[in-house]
Each structure stands twice: as C-alpha cells, then as structure tokens.
Design a protein around this nucleic acid. Structure first.
Lengths: 306, 306
DNA sequence: CGTCTCCATACCTCCACGGTATCGACGTGC
DNA sequence: GCACGTCGATACCGTGGAGGTATGGAGACG
C-alpha cells in the first residue's frame, strides 16, 4: 500500500528519523526526573504510575535522542547519575517548572475574566505582616486593582511557587531567601533582635552582640526546614512556622534572632533585645521575569512607591 | 478481550481521561507558538512540516486540556489571539527555551569530557573588547580553566542565547540590555563619548552636552536592529555592527554616542568628544540562574576579582 | 548455589498522531 | 448574485509508539 501512488500515505517521516532536532517531550523529562531522584527504575515507575519496562525504554530513548549521551550509569543492581545526567536533572526541573507555569498562568488568565483571583501573592507566615497589610490596603485602593489571593507558606518554598506559576509575586527576605532568577525591588531594611522568654537573664540587657548571643545564651537556636521540607541534623528543636517558634521560645526550649518587625505581633511572654551587629534584613518584592502583567506592574509600583 | 481477566491488558488510562494534571507536551506548545505567530493554521502547518488538519486538532486538544480555555478566536477566515492565548504564547516561548536549554546543556555536558568547549561566552561584536581580552587571559591562567568559546553576535540577541542554552555567560551593557531573568555582576562603569568624522566642527570641542549633541549635530544617529533583527522606522542609516557603524560615520553619514572604551580600537579617521551628562554605561557579566557549573563560577570569580 | 533484586528485552494491544478527502463559512470578483 | 477561492473544521484511515505482561540475565547475599 505504501509502494507508490500520488502521495505518501502518511508517516511522521522525521519523528524518529535521526537523533536530531527539536525533541525532548515533557513526558520524557518527567520520567527522567523521577528516575534521577529515585535512582531506581522500579520505584520511579511506581511513582509515575506506569510499569517499569516502559520507563526503561523511555530513558533509553531519551539517551538516544540526546545523541547517545549516557545519563545514568546502570549496573544490573542500581543506577547512578552521570555528570551529564546531573546537568539534565537540574535543567529538566527548571524546564518542567516553566511548562507547569505556562499551564497554570494560562488557566488563570482564562479564569480571571470569570471572577478568579487576579494575583497570587505568597509570603512567609508571620513575617512582614504589617508591611503586607499596608501593601494590600494601598493596592486595593488603586484604581483598576484586581483581587489578590494571599498564600502563606513555609520557609524557602516561595521561589518554587513563583517559578512554577502557582504564585505571581512574593515577599522575600535577604539574606535568607534565594532570589536567583527572579526580578526584585527592595522595600524595607531593618535590624534584627534576639527573641527570648520574658524571664530570661539576657532579656533586661539594652542590647547584645552576636558574639554575646552565641556565648552567653544557654538556649539553642531552632532549626528551620530546608527547601525539601526536611530538617537538617543538629541541635535545637525543629520549628515549622513562627507560631511554633514562639511557643518553643515561650516554653524555654530555644531562642531566635529575627527581624525587628516581629515585635509588632509578639506574644506578651516573650522579650526582645536588639542585636546591632546582626546582618540587616531586607524585605523585597519579587516576581518571575517576563511576567509583568498590568495588575502585577501596578502592585509592584504600589509597593515601591513609599 | 478487555472484559476481565487477571489484569487489565493495557491502556494509558489517564493520558486523555480528563483535562487534568501534568499535561502540556512540548510538541503542543511548539504547535501553538507556530499558530500564534502566524495567526494562520495553514502557514503554521507548513512551517511545522505537517498538514493543516492535524494542527487544528492539536490546538483544539490543547484548549481542551487547559480546561476549555479559548486560546484563539477563530473566524472561518482567520485566527486571532485571545488574552489567555497571549499569556500562553509568552509562557510557552519561555518554557520551550528552557526545554531547548536542557537539551543543549546536556549535550554539551556530555561532549565537554570528550574535548568540546567548556564554556560559551557571548558578547556584542566590537564592545568591551579590551575588557574581554583581559578577562579571557586572566581566566586562562587560572588553574582548572576550561576552553572558552567566544561567540560574537548582534545587538539584543545575547539574552536569548543565554536562555535557550546556546551560551553560558554574556557581557551585557546597562542601560541598553535587558537583564530580567539573569543573574549578573557589575564589572565596569564608564562615561560615553560622541563619535564623529575627524573633520567635523564639533570634533575639536573639549566636551559636549547631550543637549548640544542633539541640537548642534547635523548628523543622524544610526538605528540598531531590535531583538527580531528588524530595524525600526525612523531617520538615520541602519547599522548592524560597529564596523558598519564606524564606516557610516567615517563617510559622514551619521554619528553615535558610545562608551568611552570604544576609543581603544577606533579608526584614525574618527574623532571622539566626551559627553559628561550622557548616562553612564555599566558592563556586566550575566549568566542564567541555577546554572553555576564549576568552570562558570570560576570565570565569574575571575571577572569580578579586579 | 539457590534466591532475590533490579534492569533489559520480547511481544502484544490500542490510542493518538499524522495523512488525505471533503465540508461549511465567509470574503471577492465578474 | 453567484461562481470561486480561502481558511478552518470534520470524517475517516493507517501506522508508530506508549503502555501493558512475561521473561531473561547479571550481580548481591545467605
């Protein structure tokens, strides 16, 4: 049937031809990321909801499409990332975030006209709450303001939410947060204070230095979860948010060095002592590059104009 | 055959099920970008090398997968972008750049160990050549330096090369280049000078102001191509690179305001006059976020340590 | 040396992609 | 006003690839 005739009946004719151009489907990238994270084809397949053999084939095909690059060093017992595989893992995560962002932002662009949220702002729970309240009030008073959803999240998840399109804009804090790949404007800089139980001996001091805090303090500094939601090993109790943190401090289980502005909403059983030589904390507003919609630009303008 | 039995014979079972989660293949995005750019299904199909009906269906499927969003307003005569379509066009371009970057960087990571270039640096032809030469020399002297390919390109294409993985690092110039979405470090700030034919009356002045340059100058300022390689309408001859520009000036067809450092390699038949009130030009080194390989970090370190 | 684990291969089924043919809608020219 | 051209949508078909199960081969372990 395909012998001759006026026209070739069909055929992708270049979908599989050579390794070459324009390939890399997102499915393949998702599969590779799963395998690279699990370092185990069986578990990765389980996570992806497919069987193991198709996954093996998909990875092999991906390697072929990249020109015969070995992404994983397989023994018949396990799998390890090659150098190229490590590069692809990093790049694939970023690319998949961008694809997810494309989907989410498009969906929201469509739902905005039908009453969905116009902007999603993400902030750390308990941080810069006064600044945030003022910003939201000021923006709401602007002509043409759209509804703003506020998402409060844990530490260090904000930039991910921005990158994969779940949020449009974030309040971040230097030097704690990572701003690489984001556009930012500084909003506010402040010093830091030591937060202690009200009855603690140091609580009556007019100020303490970082060195004094480290040496005189008999309380451990709590640990925050990292970007994966895990807690690093070490001393001190784990704290997930400021409420937990304050309670731990009130219970005499720890102390913390926080930006001054935490004093506005502090529990009465906690005390603060300025730490003049602690690094200054800058609150800034951040958004993904190339995503300046009109409402976002207005919000940024409102935030920086003061 | 699929009535019962010990196991369901096969079936993607969720590939097309609902609109839902984790979709958006890059092929669909490429198709959509082609249609959105052409605003014509037939031409887009031609460009993509497929027939028109499959393209129509692919776009329709994409709209369904996004939850019934209308991306294109079709009349039976033509197609126009909806608001959501415009959002997806922007986001899809960025996502496809990221996917392409993943592919390119992985290929290069694999070829690096087999003698390929270690880093690709992109700079505007004719700009900052002295700085660039010093940087390359200093980096080459570092222990563990890898080969650096230098790509010279026209104006305003550099950030694209960085974003889609064809280059690893660039020399950009504020306030001319767009640095959104890139990580940067400032390298050098300098004033600007007016570049004239050697015999021009203004060439003997010790300095000129911007206002004087605008009013006294009888020569037009040449036009540079924009990011798409097109020339905006307006007066003045079009110039593609500094060689063309210098020749145009030498021929008495124009003048230009350029950073001081252009004087190091200037033709003898051109003269320069300082313009003290012209905006300062900052040369900076830029790289894509989350791509700090060890050689790249070393190059950036070398560049900023002076 | 059997057994278990883990990745690869073999072989099957079916959907989705791509192809051609054609229709319906809308301008356009005589 | 009606034939015609254009453009997108629909109908129908064939194939490739994505997914499935069954099984093989290689190394770790008792």
């Amino acid at each position: 049937m395909e012998t001759d005739g006026p026209a070739r009946p069909n055929g992708p004719a270049e979908t599989d031809g050579l390794a070459a151009a324009g390939g890399l489907e997102t499915r393949e990238l998702r599969y590779f990321v799963a395998v690279a994270e699990e370092l185990h084809f069986g578990r990765a397949a389980l996570r992806l909801g497919i069987a193991q053999p198709p996954l093996s084939r998909a990875i092999a095909r991906l390697e072929r499409r990249l020109g015969g690059v070995r992404l994983l060093a397989r023994t018949s017992r396990s799998a390890a990332l090659t150098e190229a595989g490590a590069v692809l893992l990093r790049e694939a995560r970023s690319a998949l975030d961008a694809v997810d962002a494309a989907e989410r932002r498009t969906r929201r662009a469509a739902s905005t006209s039908t009453g969905g949220p116009g902007l999603v702002l993400v902030a750390k729970a308990g941080a810069s709450s006064e600044l945030l309240a003022k910003l939201l009030d000021a923006y709401a008073a602007e002509p043409g303001a759209v509804p703003v959803d506020v998402v409060l999240c844990g530490i260090a998840q904000q930039s991910r939410l921005l990158r994969d399109g779940r949020a449009d804009v974030a309040l971040l804090h230097l030097p704690f947060d990572d701003t690489t790949g984001l556009d930012t404007e500084d909003l506010y800089t402040e010093g830091q204070v030591l937060v202690l139980p009200a009855g603690h001996p140091l609580a009556t001091r007019p100020r303490v230095s970082m060195a004094e805090a480290a040496s005189l303090l008999d309380l451990p500094l709590p640990r925050w979860p990292d970007a994966d939601g895990r807690y690093a090993d070490g001393p001190g109790p784990p704290a997930h948010d400021t409420t937990q943190l304050y309670q731990l401090i009130a219970l005499g289980r720890g102390a913390a060095i926080l930006p001054e502005s935490c004093r506005t909403n502090l529990r009465p059983d906690l005390a603060t002592v300025p730490v003049p030589d602690a690094p200054a904390v800058t609150t800034l507003i951040a958004w993904p590059p190339h995503s300046r919609s009109r409402p976002l630009a207005a919000l940024i303008h409102t935030a920086t104009r003061r």
